[in-house]
Design a protein around this nucleic acid. Structure first.
Lengths: 209, 209
DNA sequence: AGGATTTTTTGATAAATGTCAAAAGATAGG
DNA sequence: CCTATCTTTTGACATTTATCAAAAAATCCT
C-alpha cells in the first residue's frame, strides 16, 4: 500500500533488517527474562513485519481500519486527530521502544478517527492483534511481555488523564518539561502545544516566563 | 483493615457470597468462551477476595501503596485526586463489570496519589497483580480475559485523552451525555463536573442551554 | 414532617486561554 | 548563499472558564 522508502532514504540503511530483528529479540528476552528457543525466535521473526517509514509518511489515515500494532524500533511517530475546525490534537507520541496503534480501530476493526505518521525517519515492527495473541498463546515470553507492556501503557495513560483534567495549561507544561524533556528536544513547539491541548501562541507565552 | 459492613448494610445481604462468585465465574467463562473446570473455578474463588463496601468508604487513600486490582461486581466507585488547592478531580468512574485500581501504585508498588472510594454501596472482588498473573499462567481463560480487558481499557482511555485535550468543556459535556448517560443518572453534578475537569458552576451553566 | 446539610443555580467579576494578524526568526532546498 | 516556507513570537482583542458570594432547590436524618 505504501511505498517502501528503502532505496531513497540513506539513513534507513544504517542497520540491516537482520540486526534490527536481533536487537528486538534480545531486548525483549532480557525484558521478560525468558530464554527464547531458535524455534520461537523464528516464529517471532515471521510474525512481525518490518517497515521503514520516512518523515511525514503515514502509517494510518482517518477513516481507515487500523490493521496493526507497531513497535517503534527507532525514530518517532505520533497519533493525532483533526476536528471539524481543522484543529490538530496529538494523542500520543511514540518513541523508540514504545507501541503505537489506533487502539479502538485495531481492536474493534472499525474505521478510526486518527492519523498516525512519522515525525522522524523511523523503523517499526508491525503485527496484527490476532497474530500477537496467537503468538502469546504459543510463546510464554510474548504472553508475559504483553502483560508487562499493558501495565506500562496503563500507567502512562492514567497519568496523562490526570494531568489533562486536573491541571492548568501552565502546570501541564511544567509537568511535561519534567517528565518528558526529550519531547522538547525532538518535537516542534507546535506539536508540543498540540500534545498539551493548547495553542502554539499560548505555549510561547508560557515559555516567556 | 476496613470494617466489614455486612451486618449493618441490609442491601449488601441481597446476594450471598456464593451467588456472587458464581455470577462472576459464569460471566467470564461466557466472555472468554472457555470452559472452566471445577479445579479452575476453585482456584479463582480462592484467589479473589470478596469485599463489600458501603457508600463513602475508601478502598485506597493518597499515600498508600495500592495492593489490589478490584473488579466491580455491583455498585459504583471512583478514583480521584486532590491537589494543593484542595481541588478534587475524578480520574475514572468504575461501574459493575469494570476494574479499578491505582495502576501506577499497584504496578510499581509505590505510594499512590489517588483516593478510591465507593459512590454507592458496592461489592468488589480483589486480587493482587502478582496473583492475577500467576492465575493467568495456569488458567488460559484468565489469561485471555486479561488480554481482552486490557484491550477494552486501552480503548476507553484513548477516548478519554482525546476528549480531554481536543474538546471544549461544552463539547466534552455533550460527548459524555451521549457516551455515558448512566453517569448522569447515578452521579451528582459535582462529580460529573470533576470528571469533566470543570467547575460545577460551569457545568450548571452549560446545562441551562 | 421539619430542620440541617448538601447540591445546584445565579450573578458579578477576574483570570486563563483562544483568535486573528503581522513581524521576526529559523530551516530546507535549489 | 538566497529565497521560499515554516515556526515562533508579539500585540490587540474576544471568548471561555474560574472565582467568590449568595440564593434556591434538593436531600438527608431523625
Amino acid at each position: 500500500m505504501n511505498l517502501n522508502y528503502d532505496t531513497t532514504v540513506g539513513k534507513l540503511r544504517e542497520h540491516s533488517d537482520h540486526e534490527i530483528f536481533d536487537a528486538f529479540l534480545t531486548y525483549f528476552s532480557d525484558y521478560t527474562k525468558h530464554q527464547l528457543s531458535t524455534d520461537h525466535r523464528k516464529m517471532i521473526r515471521d510474525a512481525f513485519k518490518l517497515k521503514k517509514i520516512s518523515k511525514r509518511q503515514f502509517l494510518l489515515r482517518e477513516g481507515e481500519v487500523c490493521k496493526y500494532i507497531s513497535y517503534v524500533v527507532s525514530g518517532a511517530l505520533r497519533t493525532y486527530s483533526i476536528n471539524e475546525r481543522g484543529q490538530e490534537s496529538i494523542i500520543v507520541f511514540a518513541l523508540e521502544g514504545e507501541w503505537v496503534s489506533d487502539w479502538e480501530s485495531v481492536n474493534l476493526k472499525t474505521p478510526g478517527n486518527y492519523y498516525i505518521d512519522a515525525i522522524e525517519d523511523s523503523v517499526v515492527l508491525q503485527i496484527s492483534p490476532a497474530e500477537l495473541l496467537s503468538l502469546a498463546e504459543k510463546i510464554p515470553a510474548i504472553d508475559q511481555f504483553m502483560h508487562l507492556e499493558h501495565g506500562a501503557i496503563t500507567i502512562t495513560t492514567q497519568k496523562r488523564i490526570h494531568s489533562a483534567i486536573s491541571m492548568s495549561a501552565e502546570e501541564r507544561y511544567h509537568e511535561l518539561l519534567k517528565s518528558h524533556p526529550q519531547y522538547f528536544r525532538r518535537f516542534s513547539q507546535n506539536m508540543i502545544a498540540s500534545y498539551l491541548g493548547i495553542k502554539p501562541e499560548t505555549l510561547s507565552r508560557l515559555r516567556r516566563r
